[in-house]
Design a binder for these strands. Sequence first.
DNA 1: CATTCTCCGACTCATACGGTCTTCTACAGT
DNA 2: ACTGTAGAAGACCGTATGAGTCGGAGAATG
Lengths: 153, 153
Amino acid sequence: MLRLTKKADYGLMALKYLAEQTGGSAHSAKDIAEAYHIPPQLLAKILQTLAKGGLLVSHAGTNGGYALAKPANEITAFEVIRTIDGPLFITSCITIHGACDLTSTCTIKEPLRKVNDSIKDLLSGIYIADLVEPGDAERSKHAVGGGLVSIAL
Amino acid sequence: MLRLTKKADYGLMALKYLAEQTGGSAHSAKDIAEAYHIPPQLLAKILQTLAKGGLLVSHAGTNGGYALAKPANEITAFEVIRTIDGPLFITSCITIHGACDLTSTCTIKEPLRKVNDSIKDLLSGIYIADLVEPGDAERSKHAVGGGLVSIAL
DNA sequence: CATTCTCCGACTCATACGGTCTTCTACAGT
DNA sequence: ACTGTAGAAGACCGTATGAGTCGGAGAATG
Ligand code: SF4
Ligand code: SF4
């Protein structure tokens, strides 16, 4: 349940890698793939998707590669996941309204929507910058509601 | 992303239905299926799983059916989902340690585990009883941390 | 005892994720 | 301008697993 795809997983790793390399210059997909031992071609595809989504900037040719399009502390995990896996959410009815033919009779639609929003807020409070340093507090100032996500049905 | 299976979805609906019927007597899978227009056989299977997981008690034979094994305010959404969809979580590495062969090189494992726990706590704070009445506060006393889930990497 | 009702486990089908391959385009340095 | 490198883009396949279906076992009633 609630499994997030491996593509998104790899995507986050790549983002983190790029965030660590403050050198500024671009890093090739191959480099990142080798650093973490993930299938190079697959990661290339993921990076393409991220570039198309505006989270990365690509630079072709010799010494080319990818670089972050925005500072690491302005990219949320939610953006990354949504860009890679698409905007689909925990229930079929939330994004595509006609997906579930029970929308009329269903009674748990609204509560689940709340849960959905809570998770979304949770992910939106996590930034790439939070991943690079395993340090604790301080950065959480970004987090929604001061790092607390309320769940009230 | 983060899609929760339709089975779990249906399962929650069925649980809610049973919670509403305070009559105490058992209700057949067919009845519930007809009430919500979901495939009867599929729902039967879901209820079987829930019964096996100890959330429901089944009663075969004429006038048989299913009933809640515990009071509605003691069954969490998390239990339901875990029972139906299995204990799998957002990343492959959390439950089955050998699932991802990058566990050694992966650097985002720990942060994601935190996220995972947060979602788990979030779901654990939701009870079946919370679904039947669309009312607001008061029941949230059950919720973990007073309805607030903290996310701190 | 027989019939009817319901649960139960095993089974099939479809989707889509994970991963790979091939081709084309763009840039850097010579 | 030429060449080698690296990215972009699309098609392609195998498999995992989700969604849905089927026939049989078992229990209660009469
Ligand atoms: S059953 Fe209800 S909550 Fe689930 S997808 Fe359909 S309308 Fe949404
Ligand atoms: S080890 Fe890292 S890459 Fe592998 S499943 Fe866990 S978080 Fe994802």
